[in-house]
Nucleic acid binder design. Sequence first.
DNA 1: CGGCAGTGGTTACATTTGAAACCAATTTTA
DNA 2: TAAAATTGGTTTCAAATGTAACCACTGCCG
Lengths: 174, 174
Amino acid sequence: MTTTDNTKIDTTDFSDPIDAVRPDDLRLEKFLPYRLSVLSNRVSNAIADAYSARFDLTIPAWRVMAILGRFPNLSAADLVEQTAMDKVAISRAVSILIKNDYITRSEDLADRRRQVLNLSDLGRDVYERIVPLAQQYENDLMGSLSADERNQLDSIIEKLMARAQDWANRGLID
Amino acid sequence: MTTTDNTKIDTTDFSDPIDAVRPDDLRLEKFLPYRLSVLSNRVSNAIADAYSARFDLTIPAWRVMAILGRFPNLSAADLVEQTAMDKVAISRAVSILIKNDYITRSEDLADRRRQVLNLSDLGRDVYERIVPLAQQYENDLMGSLSADERNQLDSIIEKLMARAQDWANRGLID
DNA sequence: CGGCAGTGGTTACATTTGAAACCAATTTTA
DNA sequence: TAAAATTGGTTTCAAATGTAACCACTGCCG
């Protein structure tokens, strides 16, 4: 174990006395990593459909635009840092966006390896139409939660994220 | 809008007065679909590494085993229903597992299209060694949350899942 | 200066994934 | 009981994704 104590945590409180599974079985439908994956896929797919239907944008491409909309004059490396996407994904998204005239690329004369990226006028236009759409999805999701739950969700995600990050760094659980 | 009222929900409470972005900018790092995707990828990748390093199993293959460990004698179609994976993924996972002798496939004489799947002895063996590993990951993740948060997480996920499912059915937000 | 390690970014290749076409067995319906 | 429609499952093909190799440039150290 890395950091956790050995306390058994019962994920669910509704233990069905009759239908109980053997203690050593895994209930996939209650297994957090599994549930996260299903949830995330459902959400992402729905939204990806919406973006691509209306603006012919992939999710990675949209993410790049979302960042450039807030922070102009970034390089691809800056985007990597901001988005947690990898080099290649960024590079591909950027090249699509340039082909679509959604962003512009200009050389950085100080460092001729770097390329400074920005939304084009067209790109900003699209950006400004997508943002409300994105917010609508967000609101719709959040609207399904109680006020209490909304408040906790943020901190829950941060904590889980940090823990998963630990795994990636320190090497896994051993 | 489909189901939501127009109430603006503020995802975050720590609104930084100085550094505030324009109200119409999207803060990707606070955007729930994005965060879910990053979180889910981090978690899944870490675990996928662990499984594949020790047992040469992909995540889909492991999921199939997890279900078969609890519910013997399922068909591929049953697995589709249980796992939320699709036909093709199941078919591929099954064929790998058979090649590894982790599961067995026998014809259903009543319906000769169907194939009844089960863990082999070897498969059950592996299953029984993975379950504790999986539980360890789960516990480690959950251990990063407060008791309160753990209690709410389950219901939060259910609600978000249901909402995202709605999107898929009713067609998206319009 | 002149090499040489490190960085920004793209390309090439292998692997994964998903959609649609497909085959075979079964059920329906007329 | 013979189409026609459905269901279980696999195969095929295209698109998405990740890894590693790579090129061009910079910056450092001798």
